[in-house]
Amino acid sequence: NITNLCPFDEVFNATRFASVYAWNRKRISNCVADYSVLYNLAPFFTFKCYGVSPTKLNDLCFTNVYADSFVIRGDEVRQIAPGQTGNIADYNYKLPDDFTGCVIAWNSNKLDSKVSGNYNYLYRLFRKSNLKPFERDISTEIYQAGNKPCNGVAGFNCYFPLRSYSFRPTYGVGHQPYRVVVLSFELLHAPATVCGPKKST
């Protein structure tokens, strides 16, 4: 009989979030998941669920729940959905087409922007091929755009693959930082360890 609440607040209220290319994953298990708490945590810009209804979450049980978190800019949030393409979905964080879970995003301009520009958040701009779903690539190998090998040196047709967002508070919403948490629900042929409040007794 599990009584402890799932530590969603640790994920959502973390002081620092990860850069999207090096997104963070927390496995959540053996706890009571009260998803209604999430609705009250922040004024969400996005709370979209796929393959599951957000209002039914509190009635369900899962084997595992994974919470992935990272920062992107406002106009990239739409890429965090099944079947999307674009720089983020292709080279940084890719959801599977049959994704079961929820994408939660909110504006973090007050936390993640600086007047002089916050350069701490990076994204991958160049990659030889698209990522597979939930693949994480943290390599910093020089990207070869031409025929000549780069031998690890940046220059003509040889690019450092990561680029930094420079978040400034005066930017338009599309270029402001957004914190994203992706909850993916895993149903294996194994005992369910993460249940809503109704199912945990």
Score class of each variant (00 low, 15 high):
P191L: 03
T85N: 10
R136T: 04
L5S: 10
L183R: 00
V77K: 02
K56Y: 06
S139G: 10
Y121N: 05
R27N: 14
S36Q: 10
K48E: 09
D59T: 12
D68C: 02
E76N: 02
T55F: 10
C61F: 07
N1I: 04
Q79N: 04
P96S: 06
Y66V: 12
Y143D: 08
I88K: 02
P169T: 09
N87R: 12
Q176W: 01
F17M: 06
N64H: 15
K110G: 12
R16Q: 13
R163V: 11
N107P: 07
V115S: 14
F99Y: 02
A192I: 11
D68F: 02
S29I: 07
Y35G: 07
A89Y: 00
T3P: 09
N58Q: 13
I138V: 14
Y21P: 02
A42K: 14
L162Q: 03
N157Q: 13
V153F: 10
V181L: 06
N24H: 12
I28G: 05
L41N: 13
G86M: 04
V180R: 00
R124P: 02
A18F: 05
K132S: 09
Y50R: 01
T140Q: 11
V32C: 12
I80N: 03
Y21F: 09
R168V: 11
P177K: 03
C150T: 05
E186R: 07
K132Y: 07
S29Q: 11
P149I: 09
L162C: 03
Y93D: 02
N64C: 12
F8C: 03
F44V: 13
D34S: 06
L187G: 14
F99A: 00
A190D: 13
D9I: 10
V115H: 14
W23A: 04
S69W: 03
A154Y: 08
F160S: 13
P149S: 15
T100W: 07
S19C: 05
F70C: 01
F44N: 15
Y21E: 05
N13P: 00
P54H: 11
V77T: 05
I28V: 07
V181Y: 03
E186N: 12
N1Q: 09
T63V: 09
S29M: 08
N109K: 10
R168P: 07
E135I: 02
P177T: 03
C6R: 02
A154E: 15
A89M: 01
R168L: 12
E135L: 03
R73L: 04
S19Q: 04
K56R: 12
C49N: 00
S116M: 12
Y123P: 03
P149Q: 12
P161K: 01
D75L: 05
T201F: 14
V115N: 14
V180Y: 01
F156E: 15
Y165D: 06
F160P: 14
L38T: 03
Y123A: 07
S108Y: 03
N1A: 07
L162D: 06
R179W: 01
C49M: 00
T15C: 01
I2Y: 13
Y91L: 07
V182Q: 00
E135V: 04
A192D: 13
G146V: 04
E10K: 10
D97G: 08
E76H: 08
F47M: 15
S129H: 13
